[in-house]
Structures are given as C-alpha cells and as structure tokens.
Amino acid sequence: MKTWVDLQTDSFLDANARQRAIGLVDEGSFTELAGPMDRLQSPHLPLLGEAVEFDDGIVTGVGLIAKRAVFIASQEGRFIGGAVGEVHGAKMVATLKLALDSYEKMKKDNPSLPDNRGPVAVISFETGGVRLHESNAGLLAHAEVVDQIQKCRGKVPVIAVIGSKVGCFGGMGFVAAQTDVSIMSPFGRLGLTGPEVIEQEMGKDEFDSSDRSLVYRTTGGKHKYILGDANYLVEDSIGSFRQKLSEVLSLSQDEINAHRRIGSLRLVENQLNKVRLSITLKPKDSKDVWKYAGNDNPESLVDLSTSDFLSVARRLKFMAANEEV
C-alpha cells in the first residue's frame, strides 16, 4: 500500500485519480465524498453493455493544505479515457458547489475572512471531454461546471492541475481554460481537439499523432507554458504539484485573478492578438512560435529538463494594447 510519503515522489503521470487526490493535499487530510462505496454509477452505460465504475471515473472530496480547505475533483483516465458522463460531471459540479457553499458560510460567520484563507477548488484533469455514450448529459455537465466556475470567481480560486496520461482535451479543454490558475508538468497536455482526432479528420500530413515529439511540443506543458496557457510548469511528481499548489494558495485574490488567461476584455484582446499572430507568423511548428517569443535556439528546449527549461525559456509576451503583465 502506497503511503502519502511515497506518493510525494511518485510520478504524477503514472498516478491514478485517487492517488493524486490523496497526495495533492496534506498527509492524511483527504476525505473522499461520494466515493466508490456510495456506488454512484452511470445509469446509461449498462443499457449500452458498457462496463461501469463505482465512482464513475472521478474521485471527489476535500482535504487541507496548510489548514486551508481544498476541494478536489480528480479524473481517472483509465476509465473510458476520463470521459465526462452525467454522474461524473455532477460530481465535479457538486465539488465546486460545496467549495462555494463553504466559502459563503465562512464569510457569513466571519465577515473579515482574509481572502487567502477561504476554501479553494482543484481539478486534476485527465479527460478527452464528453462521454459520447451520454452525449447530452455529458455536454450539460460541462456547461454546469463552467457555470459553477463563474460563480466561484473572486471567491473560491479554481485551480487546474494537468499532468496525466490522457491530457485534458475536448470540452474539458474549454473548462480548464476558464479556471483561475493552471499548473502543468511537461507531460501534461492541453487542447481542444486531440491529436488522434485531428489526424482522423485532417489526415496524417496535417498532424501525425504517432509523432510523440510533435504531439508534446504542440499540446504539452512546455508549449503551453511559453504560450501562457499554463501559468506554471512543474516537475512530474505529485509533490511538485503539491508544492506549487501551496505557493498559489498563499496568494491574495487579486494576485489569483492576475493568473487568469481569459475572463476580461483585456485578456480576450490578448488571446485574439495571439490568434492574429498565427496568421501573420504562419508557424509551421511550435518551434517557430518559441523562436518568436525570444528563444533563439528553440530546438534545444525540446529535451531540456524541467528546471533547465524554466531557467532559459522565454515566454510569449502579453499582447493586449500597450500593456505587459
């Protein structure tokens, strides 16, 4: 049996959803809510003859980091690729709702609650998006998660951690973009349309999904860090993610807000300018963008260790009018 101490040095990539949930918070503090013993399984999969899981592929609960309540939803990629069905989605929504409800209660009991002492919500993404077997319910769940994230804004920081095998794709790519802070490892992958789907739809000439290096430098953590889609890049261990989380938790609400990638006119302007850049720059590869961002030898970044990468990599600058962050 893995202890919490083992988990800290374990690869985040290889960890299952429950190990991530347990290891991201302080030792022994994780309490699973709506766990496998509650048998909240998908009502749809049995009708299609598909295997079910007692927790519907998501581990939800609450733990502590430095005495601060951390509500966690952690997706299990090995169960139908972490796809979001009705129950799976409802558990994620309820996790965010619980965090917000406890914030409201704390604020009511203690109106002078400092803004970095309230609860936070963490989503450990490992998903391809909607579970097609439950398409409408799955899509609706995405919308409800987004709705909850909006309700949490300015109250409960919502933090995305991405570093698992399946990555974070499809509708959940949109959801991850709307969180306040995103933390990735170089093995984390983030995007809308996954590599296999691009190849299937557009052909191997457009995107060769068997080219691992291409896949990682297009969707992986290093690229997302340079682009600004990931706020932080950390080593591939549960402990590294936990360490970064605890640093983020010490920030004030204003500082948390400054991490957002979308959510204001200014931020959207920045994103649109990056889209415009892709038209003028006509990049053939992520490395063209890395070069534009000021990395004179982009090829060298590909194989750098995380710490070496962080010490030399230059990030794309903020592109809203006459402003830099």
Partner: peptide
Amino acid sequence: SLHYGVVGSGDMEVI
C-alpha cells in the same frame, strides 16, 4: 471494507 482497482480496459475493480 475495502475498494480496490480501476476499471481500465482489461482491468477491474472490487469492493
């Protein structure tokens, strides 16, 4: 009581 495993492809879980 105990829960163990993940329902991956070619895998199972048990309570």
